[in-house]
Amino acid sequence: MSDTIRSLKLSHVVLPLETPVSDAKVLTGRQKPLTETVLLFVEVTTEDGFEGMGFSYSKRAGGPAQFTHLREVAEVAIGQDPSDIDRIYQSLMWAGASVGRSGVATQAVAALDVALWDLKARRAGLPLAKLIGAYRDSCQVYNTSGGFLQASVEEIKEKATASLEMGIGGIKIKVGQPDWREDLRRVEAVREHLGDGPMMVDANQQWDRARARRMCRELEQHDLVWIEEPLDAWDAVGHADLSRVFDTPIATGEMLTSVPEHMALVDAGYRGIVQPDAPRIGGITPFLRFATLAAHAGLALAPHYAMEIHLHLAAAYPTEPWVEHFEWLNPLFDERIDIHDGRMWVPERAGLGFTLSDQMRALTKDTVTIG
């Protein structure tokens, strides 16, 4: 007989950041500085004793909603075969259909979906990348956490140097301030500091179409790997237009929370870099579905945040991707990812390759066990 899901443990975790950070959304008055990351963890156990762990997250708002939504619908997974991940995914989406198939609904289900993939790979004794089918054992890695706008140019330079010394290959900094001239000054200073090393910029959706075209034109001279989210995340046509006009690749997608939202970019003729986020798009199941379509469209990949998950998914993408380095989630896990020579290396451990730390337990604000 096949194995079945016996129980699910849901944990609501609040992880404070050592230093509050600000991107352009803060400087334009649309958001407050980011002070914490709120996570939804799922630990799944089967009747045969196999286990898996997955997580989703939110920033500034939505964490309690994710926890509450999954607590409402997770019961439908009990008794199902954990290998039937897509079937379970669909049953969870139907159980919560009244709130839609994007946003909080998909982000809540994502934590369980990731846990089921982790379980499947652990049971097979394989790293998740190997279970899916890896193209490579490591991926290019760039750092974002040192490039936020509350930091001075000198601080960004120091953090960039530290990142490069620890083996990270590329550096991304934030732009999109109300004073676009200050953006250009910061980019020029960091580009000079890095020499010809890989560099990216991220405007966090703060330009309109006219400003985005002007800024992309100004930034062409700096030989950037990409310009990220120059426009509103849901402006698929605008991003597609920019991607066809400029030599510097355009990148977007991190904010989108379903496969159809991502496919709007492809349908609009987008030629840039896609940045799906597994915890936001709904988990590994929809991530892989979109990744297949993106690869067919010839798009490059650079998944957003959550390197503990995305390293495996990037390693299974046909063309060479980038993985984003954030050390913020390190306290939640006992293990660390190997980074050297500008690359992030897939763990040889089974599943995602991570176990939950005592600190994660200490940061847990609420738990519920289902089943």
Rank of each mutant, 00 (worst) to 15 (best):
I337Y: 09
M263H: 02
T292W: 01
G269Q: 02
F55I: 05
L131H: 12
M344P: 09
R213H: 07
L164M: 04
G49Y: 08
P127V: 11
T292V: 05
E254W: 04
A162Q: 08
G269L: 02
T144P: 03
Y89I: 02
V21Y: 10
S98W: 12
L70D: 11
V190R: 04
A210S: 13
P347H: 06
G146Q: 13
G52M: 12
V73P: 11
G96V: 07
K32S: 14
P321V: 06
E335H: 12
T68N: 10
E36N: 13
Q221R: 15
G133M: 11
R186F: 01
P249R: 12
G96Y: 04
L92M: 11
H193R: 04
Y57Q: 02
G282A: 12
Y135K: 09
L34F: 02
L131P: 07
T46Y: 11
A121S: 15
A294L: 07
Q150D: 13
I173S: 03
V266Y: 01
E51S: 14
D267C: 07
E348T: 15
V201G: 05
I227F: 05
M215A: 15
D247T: 14
P33C: 05
A278N: 01
N143K: 03
G125I: 02
G283F: 02
S102E: 03
T46S: 14
E254A: 07
V76T: 02
P286M: 08
S357L: 11
W234G: 00
F326R: 03
M215D: 10
R213Y: 04
E327I: 05
E320F: 09
K174E: 10
M344H: 10
T248M: 09
E158P: 03
A268D: 07
R343Q: 15
A160R: 06
V104M: 04
K157C: 06
R186K: 01
F50E: 10
H304E: 00
T106H: 00
F50I: 04
L299G: 01
D179I: 06
G253E: 00
Y270Q: 00
F354C: 03
G197K: 15
E188C: 00
P279W: 00
E51W: 12
Q80C: 09
E220N: 10
V42C: 13
I85D: 06
Q275G: 03
G269H: 01
M360H: 08
R87C: 07
A316Y: 06
V190Y: 04
A302T: 03
D84H: 09
V38F: 05
R123W: 07
A110R: 06
E335Q: 15
S56G: 15
V73R: 10
L15E: 03
P16W: 11
P198D: 14
P230D: 09
F50A: 14
L224P: 09
V201W: 07
A236M: 01
D23T: 09
D113C: 01
T355N: 12
L288K: 05
A350H: 14
T144V: 11
E348P: 08
Q140T: 12
R244D: 08
A121V: 13
R244Q: 15
